[in-house]
């Protein structure tokens, strides 16, 4: 009997603890993730909400850590919480660039969506965009076939050998050790002036560039 009481007490305490913890993390959490939390719950439901909650926890853990840690944790987080699915199966479109909100909402995406999510989250963690490049690569699969792929490259310095954040190979390796990838073209937000043009509308026929389009959508969600 006593034991029962103590165990229920323990359980209440634990629940209280968890609740406090949630409250705590809520209050401390990054505004970005907080905003995302609200929207995710509204649009995609509880499961997605839980994913973002975890992202929230991750954010709180990562504040003040080194860039290397951030890169590793974010890479792992995205790779673990997003399932690789072709766009056509998620969005019903051939090639759709999703915002992180959409990707975590669906819990699925293809290589661009992985890269966009990692790029955005890292940028939000304070890593300069100059150091980050989304890169189109030609990937040689283990079967020997070639495939178009996208990864995020992290340049510690402009001339350094970049680290590759990939969703095919979860391990973060320098580019020199990724002989299966051959870079074709890289880009970041440099030279894109989305914020400067208030008339730009996401998905408008004027807006052909997918990269620009996805950035615009993020901005419209208030989640740049």
């Amino acid at each position: 009997m006593r034991r029962y009481v103590s165990s229920s007490l323990t359980r209440i305490a634990a629940s209280l603890c968890l609740a406090l913890c949630v409250l705590w993390t809520h209050t401390l959490a990054d505004d970005y993730v907080l905003a995302m939390l609200e929207k995710v719950r509204q649009r995609y439901g509880e499961e997605a909400y839980q994913n973002v909650m975890r992202l929230n926890e991750l954010y709180s853990q990562l504040s003040g850590t080194s860039e290397m840690t951030k890169i590793g944790m974010i890479n792992d987080f995205v790779n673990q919480h997003v399932m690789f699915v072709d766009d056509i199966n998620i969005w019903g479109k051939e090639d759709y660039w999703a915002t992180p909100l959409e990707t975590f909402g669906k819990g699925a995406g293809d290589c661009e969506d992985f890269s966009i999510a990692k790029y955005t989250l890292l940028k939000k963690l304070g890593i300069l965009q100059d150091k980050l490049r989304m890169t189109y690569v030609r990937a040689r699969m283990s079967s020997g076939t070639l495939r178009a792929h996208m990864v995020v490259a992290y340049y510690a310095t402009p001339n350094s050998d970049p680290l590759i954040l990939d969703n095919l190979n979860f391990q973060i390796l320098p580019a020199s050790r990724r002989s299966d990838l051959f870079p074709v073209f890289s880009f970041n937000e440099q030279g894109l002036f989305v914020a400067n043009n208030p008339n730009q509308r996401a998905g408008s026929p004027n807006n052909i560039s997918k990269w620009r389009d996805v950035l615009t959508r993020m901005r419209q969600d208030g989640l740049e």
């Binding site: 490049r133 890169t135 490259a153 340049y155 402009p158 001339n159 050998d161 970049p162 580019a175 020199s176 870079p183 074709v184 073209f185 890289s186 880009f187 970041n188 440099q190 030279g191 894109l192």
Partner: peptide, 11 residues
Amino acid sequence: GVANIQSGWQQ
């Protein structure tokens, strides 16, 4: 217009 030029993995 601004764009990056790569030389392999090198900027």
